[in-house]
Amino acid sequence: MSELETHHGEEPHIVSPKIYVLIAATLLICTALTVAASYLELGPWNAVVALGIAVFKATLVVLFFMHIKYSSKLMKLTVFAGLFTFLALVGMSMSDYISRAWGSF
C-alpha cells in the first residue's frame, strides 16, 4: 500500500478566491500609490520608487496569481532561473555600455 501512496501524492493546491480578491485589491492600491508618488518631486528617487512598486506588484502576481508560492521547488527554481538570466544579461549589457568610453577621457 505504501508503494501506491507514493504514486498518488498530494491533492493539487487550489488557491481560494479570498486570496485573489486580497491580491487584486493590493495591486490596485499599489497602482494608486505609484501614480501618487509620480506627482511628488523626488528627483532620481521617482524612478526608484516607481520601479520598486512595480517589482513588488510583479512579485505578488507571480507568487499568488501564478501560484508559484504553492508550487514545487522545480517551478520556483525555473522562475528564479529566468529572473537570474534576465538580470545577468541586462547587467552585462549595462557594464559594456558604461565602460565603453573608459580611457578616452
Binding site: 505609484t34 501614480v35 509620480s38 506627482y39 518631486e41 523626488l42 528627483g43 521617482n46 524612478a47 516607481a50 520601479l51 512598486i53 512595480a54 506588484k57 510583479a58 502576481v61 507571480v62 496569481f65 501564478m66
Partner: peptide, 24 residues
C-alpha cells in the same frame, strides 16, 4: 492563466517606465 498574468506583468513595468518616471 499563466500567459495572461505574464502579459499583465509586462504592463506593470511598461506603465511606470513610459508614463511615470519622467514626470518631473
Amino acid at each position: 492563466g499563466l500567459y495572461w498574468h505574464f502579459v499583465d506583468i509586462v504592463w506593470i513595468f511598461l506603465f511606470p517606465l513610459l508614463y511615470l518616471i519622467s514626470r518631473h
